[in-house]
Design a protein around this nucleic acid. Sequence first.
DNA 1: ATTTTATGTCAGTCATGTTGACTTATCTAT
DNA 2: ATAGATAAGTCAACATGACTGACATAAAAT
Lengths: 159, 159
Amino acid sequence: MTDIKSGTNPLFLRTDEIMQAIELLFFAYRDFTGEPDELLAEYNFGRAHHRVIHFVGRHPGITVSELLLILRITKQSLSRVLGQLVREGFIRQTPGPVDRRQRLLKLTAKGQELDDKLFEVQRQRIVRAYKESGAEAVAGFRSVLLNMMEENDRQRFSR
Amino acid sequence: MTDIKSGTNPLFLRTDEIMQAIELLFFAYRDFTGEPDELLAEYNFGRAHHRVIHFVGRHPGITVSELLLILRITKQSLSRVLGQLVREGFIRQTPGPVDRRQRLLKLTAKGQELDDKLFEVQRQRIVRAYKESGAEAVAGFRSVLLNMMEENDRQRFSR
DNA sequence: ATTTTATGTCAGTCATGTTGACTTATCTAT
DNA sequence: ATAGATAAGTCAACATGACTGACATAAAAT
């Protein structure tokens, strides 16, 4: 049961390797979100706004409940940031053509502009890391992260 | 300048690949922190407590200012969670033997026990992801995350 | 003796999450 | 046609974890 104690444990599964993985994720995620956070602060927005802009940008016409499923937060939490984004003209809501209870979400030109800016700072960091690591490493990076997330979300990445 | 428009752009640097990287990090990090968060909630602790327990566990005798440098938060923020952990007997503070202004931090047996529990849930997720991806993928994963973080923190991982 | 450093504390604010209760409009099924 | 379910929104209260700014104490360094 405890791989830790069995001598046959492959190197990459040893305790200190796992410990390093935990810290790698902590430091990389902290820096990955740091630059966008600075940019968002200029708009008096936070990371929650970023996530909404990102997923609406990626899925134009997404409904509120679909967005809630992705973000895994309550509608009250979403309501606050989404309300701000709509009031300030970053996101537009249109009634669903089939089901008129739905509010389909889309970025406005202003919202798209912010989305582009946010993407650009993250793109630069990722491109640098990808270039320095090479195509093969990138495939490994993708595989490990995919296997680390809950199974039902992995489908988003199948092609 | 814009690699996006040049046709010579390698596959793994294309816009949609970078976009996927952003989402991979979001979903993987969300699930990576989800289980520890549930465990911590039983103690009325949050993610901030986890980080303190983790880094004190990894660096017994660390000083408050060293911890602040790693976490990149203010001492007032640290003070609240550290104070709780000390009052509730998870961390012990001892005056520095050389510089008596310092408070060297160590986990108590109780703190070590929680650290072990937290490590175990994260270990299981990482081991699963590592096993399913293989040793080569793990090397790529490490490389990309290392190159994604700020340079001065990379030294922690050099061996 | 003075200044700097390590740590801690008080007070107030902000962003982002939570629970619970309730409303309105609209769709679905009997 | 009506009853119930669903999509979305709102009000209120609360917790966590970040922030700024001001100030206090003890010990080290100059």
